[in-house]
């Protein structure tokens, strides 16, 4: 069932390559890739974490600036030293978009953290995460919040522009 719906979605994506379209329920490995990122953060496997990250948009390229990635990871490590640690992440909703040979996923997630000022119960943070996957890429990449301008991203994905802004 899963394989056939993948096939149909892939055909649709090819047929509609010139027209922006919100693709169906098939997520092309999105949930699995996102789970890998969460696990990398829980394991403090920052090398793996960085492989799943994007943080820059320039000249139509959605890339990763190593310095910004290192800063984002250093920030997470500083949070951990302070006692703010990710416990779990729940994906509340996913919207998928296709723009030519590139896919965009807008994930609304609820992340639970331990927090030194709230020892009795975890603190919930609601975040919006943007996943991208270029044609031929082995897995999705996810932004780290506030590392980019949503307007720049919207310019890359006109079909999703309203949702991004």
């Amino acid at each position: 069932m899963r394989a056939s719906s993948f096939g149909i979605a892939a055909i649709f994506a090819t047929l509609l390559a010139q027209t922006p379209v919100a693709v169906g329920e098939e997520d092309f490995g999105l949930h699995n890739d996102r789970a890998n990122v969460v696990q990398a953060e829980l394991d403090e496997n920052w090398a793996l974490y960085q492989q799943y990250m994007w943080n820059t948009i320039g000249d139509g390229e959605i890339g990763t600036d190593p310095e910004a990635a290192a800063a984002a990871i250093a920030y997470k490590q500083s949070d951990r030293r302070t006692g703010i640690r990710l416990q779990s992440e729940r994906v509340d909703s996913v919207a998928l978009y296709q723009e030519r040979d590139r896919q965009l996923a807008i994930l609304e997630v609820t992340r639970l953290f331990t927090h030194p000022l709230s020892p009795a119960k975890p603190v919930a943070a609601h975040n919006r995460i943007y996943g991208v996957r270029e044609a031929g890429e082995p897995h999705w990449r996810f932004n780290v919040s506030s590392c980019f301008s949503p307007q720049d991203l919207a310019a890359q994905f006109p079909s999703a522009a309203q949702a991004i802004e």
Partner: peptide, 9 residues
């Protein structure tokens, strides 16, 4: 500095 759990405030 107050220790709390694995960190502090």
């Amino acid at each position: 500095w107050q220790e709390a759990g694995s960190g502090g405030f």
